[in-house]
Amino acid sequence: MSEQGGLDQLCINTIRTLSMDAVQKAKSGHPGTAMAMAPVVYTIWQRFLRFDPEDPIWPNRDRFVLSIGHASMLLYSMLHLTGVRAVNPQYERLGELSVTLDDIKKFRQLDGKCPGHPEYRWTSGVETLCAVRGRVHDGGGVG
């Protein structure tokens, strides 16, 4: 299968395997879509998204909305791998990571930062809640 090699492919397969491993560890979740869409999400983030992981609430950023909320591991993987920083409820940037590798290992667990579907205000860098069928926001999108 995909053995194009190169750093792009290495990153994509990292997203895929993190997603598979997190779901397996949680004994529940949705691995398939994350595995399928990893190249798409990777390309958007790496090549196009106007988003600074150091300042995830920069007002003029693009908004990436994962309407397929069940594939939340796509988002948590990207937040972790790109080093997105946490923000507190007073909209102050904190030094720490929004999602650590330990957080990913606690996917879908009580009081974790990686709930089953992305939840706004629980995880910095999640732009909106998007767990619900058909839910889209016209304010969102990449661009």
């Binding site: 750093l7 990292t14 491993d21 983030w45 992981p53 791998l81």
Partner: peptide
């Protein structure tokens, strides 16, 4: 939960 060397760095030079 393997993150090979070079992944974070590559993203840092791209989106970062």
């Amino acid at each position: 939960f393997l993150i090979p060397d070079g992944v974070r760095e590559h993203l840092r030079t791209g989106i970062g």
